[in-house]
Every structure is written in structure tokens, then in C-alpha cells.
Design a protein around this nucleic acid. Sequence first.
DNA 1: ATCCGGAGTG
DNA 2: CACTCGGGAT
Length: 242
Amino acid sequence: MSQEATVHALVSKGEAPSHPQTPPSQAKSFVQYYDRLYEKLGPQAWWPARTPFEVIIGAILTQNTSWTNVERAISNLRRERLLTPLALERVSFARLASLIRSSGYFRQKAKKLKAFVRFLRAEYSSSLARMFRTPTHELREKLLAVHGIGPETADSILLYAGQKETFVVDTYTRRILSRHGFVAEDVPYEELRALIESALPRDVSRYNEFHALLVQVGKHWCRPRGPRCSECPLQPFLESVK
DNA sequence: ATCCGGAGTG
DNA sequence: CACTCGGGAT
């Protein structure tokens, strides 16, 4: 297994001195959004997980599910010493499903976990280090071909487990940015990802933080029903949209 | 367009 | 009670 690979990519190094290329029209806005949120909410130190493998398990378990439900499942797996690729391959489907029951969709997700560890062994001898040596674009395509890994999960794996420069779009991102008039609600995943990646400095810890900050906004203010715009940290930017 | 699903919230 | 959740497969 990988060594003491702690997953915090949040290295607080100094500000990037300059932006190489001329930013598109949204660039300034997204940078302002980021700065505003970071100032108001601070560093999120995101993705609480001990190893890259645990990040990946969490990324699958948290699909359309709140993180508190996932934490129980992860802690069950840890208690049973199942947080390794080979252990997850050995454990029976029924036992795995029952251990992750709290995360919802537990049969679907047990199948997805099995699919991933099988893929990892077949393609990379169960080594995440080998997997992440694959060129990012190629790896992304291969991950998308695995049962249970869609765009958001693939990007979460690349960014939060592999420290690759890939922005993670989720429900919150889409909701916030469409309400602020940047995109339509049903904007395709790839389109929104490309937009944000082109508008922010290409930097792993920046992508990491921005996604995490948007999650906070989505949870606390930009809620699906009854958004609290007047109390939202992004409220100043909403005025110009209305 | 439907299904998967437990757990917390109002 | 209805609604929502760090989505994805069919």
C-alpha cells in the first residue's frame, strides 16, 4: 500500500505572480469569486481522508449522498481493515454492501467499488502510484470507462487523490453559477469544467479550494429551495446580474 | 425519464 | 410528511 501519503494538497504557497495568458471574459469574475470566498470562509482543507485510496472510495460513496452518511461507511470499512484494493476485492459483495449501507444506493455502490478495484488490479497491478503515472487525459478516459465512475467522480479522483490539475464540477457549482447568470442550468459538464479551468490560474490547490468553497456556498446559502442570497458571501456579485 | 436508498432537515 | 444529498447507469 502507499506509504504515509497524506492527502492534503493544500500547500499555502504565495500568490501566483502573474497570469500567463490573457484571461477570457469570465476570468476576472471567477478569480474575484474565489478571492471573496477565501477571504470570507478561509481555507477548507478539503477531502478528509487518510490516503489517496480512501479518497477514491469516498468519491464513489458520496455520489448524490451527504458526506455524513459516507463517514460511517468509511469508518466501517476501516474497522474491518478493508480500505485496501486487495481487501476490497476479497470481501464478499453482500458483506461489502452491508458495511456501506449508510451511504445509500448500497448495492449499486458495492458494485462500483468492486468494479474500481478490479480495474485497478487489471490495469495497474492494484497500484495507485502506477495509475497516477498515466498521463492525465488518458487516465481520465480510462476512469470514465469504469462502471460507476462518471465525470464528477473521475475529476474528484484526479484532483483530490492524484493532485492533477482538473476542476471538479458538481451540483453546487452548476446551481451557483447558473443563478449568477454565467451559464444555463443544464450546461453540459464538460462545458462548465472547461469554462472554469480556463478562467482560473491552472493550479491544483486553487482548483481544490474553489470547489470546496463552492460546496460551502451551496450548502449554506445557495440552497435549492429558499436561497439566502442576502446573507451569502457572494451577494455583492449577484447585484450586477440582476 | 427512472431507478437506486439511507439519513438528516423543516 | 416531502425534500435533499460532493451522481451515474439503464
